[in-house]
Amino acid sequence: MNAPISIEMVMLLAGILFILGIAGVIIRKNIIFMLLSVEIMLNAAGLAFVAAGSRWAQPDGQVMFIFILTMAAAEVSVGLALILRIYHQHKSLDIDKLKEMKG
């Protein structure tokens, strides 16, 4: 129907998503939300890959996106396991509680 979306727009979107993810990780105190914003960053990277793939009309971008998804899933699962243990030990998910090692 209307003109195809130009590659710059998609990259811009991916960039914005990426920066949102970074901001999320820095601002949020709760570990779950930090993991969540890291997920956003990973998806942004995936989006960039898909866009690049479409630019060169090669499937590689999408194959890469699938890999990114699997990796993100694995990483989040391990992350949640760790979060469970943190909650058992510290009774709170606030990242600033975990500051014993310093100097």
Binding site: I26, M34, I95, D96, K99, E100, K102, G103
Partner: peptide, 17 residues
């Protein structure tokens, strides 16, 4: 420099950025 090793994860991320 050892002051920069503050131990808080958020500070590390800011450092990385």
């Amino acid at each position: 420099l050892s002051f920069t090793q503050s131990g808080s994860l958020r500070w590390y991320i800011i450092g990385l950025v």
